[in-house]
Nucleic acid binder design. Structure first.
Length: 258
DNA sequence: AGTAATCCCTGGCAGC
DNA sequence: TGCTGCCAGGGATTAC
């Protein structure tokens, strides 16, 4: 879709509801659907009229991503503005530009290939042991790659794939066809548990980061493997190792992940 | 059809 | 002070 068609399709529309599927944001409009994905560095923020913009960007010590202590002005990384009728706006900023936004006519969004392939919602009522087993049935390859594919289960990225596999005691490079019954069961339970723990600490891992005093965010503190390469495993005390699975940095415990 | 590599993009940082 | 190479929360596309 050309930018001018995108703008034309959004102008004058009313946002009826906001939903989520996997890592996709679904804005149901009075006419059509706006679907967004934040990629790795996307930031969607609500900008209030009459509040001073912060010129300060604070760098997160672990990820290097930038956050503002309050709302930020439009800069060269700000790619989308949704101007609301009250003068406020939604701002989309994305340094690496891996995020994307698509506008669909009513209902056809769910038929899009990238959304159609999404698996079970780990926090939804559909997430049952029976469906979990079916979702992974016949699947092959490294278990972490499978989790990152969004196919069997939706919503896990590099952080929570590592965290869930550690919580379940499974090596990320272990092939799905070789997982034991108890390991599948442990993974089934670990996935929503890991996500809920992170959510309870402020929505996303780093969302409540405060940079002024140099202390790490509360969200990062619940992580047990991600970003802890070389440190001791909280569960068994072994030194955490680092490798690459599915082109992504992977941290695991050689002591208690089998 | 299913799995595995490649590519998209900017910026921070370590090492020289 | 630069420069180079590597790394970073993802997934669409291409290759096998």
């Amino acid at each position: 879709m050309k930018p001018e068609d995108f703008i034309r399709g959004l102008k004058g529309r009313r946002i009826r509801s906001l939903d989520r599927r996997g890592k996709y944001l679904i804005f149901q409009l009075d006419k059509g659907t706006l679907v967004g994905h934040l990629g790795m560095t996307g930031q969607l923020t609500y900008w209030r009229k009459g509040i001073k913009d912060s010129p300060v960007f604070v760098k997160h010590p672990l990820t290097g991503l930038q956050k503002t202590p309050s709302q930020h002005a439009i800069d060269k990384h700000t790619h989308l503005l949704l101007n609301l009728d009250n003068g406020d706006r939604l701002q989309y900023r994305d340094i690496r530009q891996f995020g994307h936004w698509r506008l669909f006519k009513k209902d056809e969004w769910s038929l899009h290939p990238s959304l159609k392939k999404l698996g079970l919602e780990p926090l939804g009522p559909q997430y049952t042991w029976a469906r979990f087993q079916t979702a992974f049935a016949g699947r092959r390859g490294k278990i972490k790659a499978l989790l990152l594919s969004q196919g069997p289960v939706a919503g896990l990225g590099n952080i929570y794939a590592d965290e869930a596999l550690h919580a379940a005691g499974i090596l990320p490079m272990k092939r799905a066809e070789n997982l034991t019954g108890p390991q599948w069961r442990a993974l089934f339970r670990a996935i929503p548990r890991v996500l809920k723990k992170a959510l309870s600490r402020g929505g996303t891992t780093f969302s409540d980061f405060r940079g002024a005093d140099g202390r790490p965010g509360r969200g990062a503190r619940v992580l047990r493997v991600y970003g802890r390469f070389g440190k001791k495993c909280f569960r068994c005390g072994a030194g955490l190792k680092k490798t690459r699975v599915s082109q992504r940095t992977t941290v695991y415990c050689p002591g208690c992940q089998k």
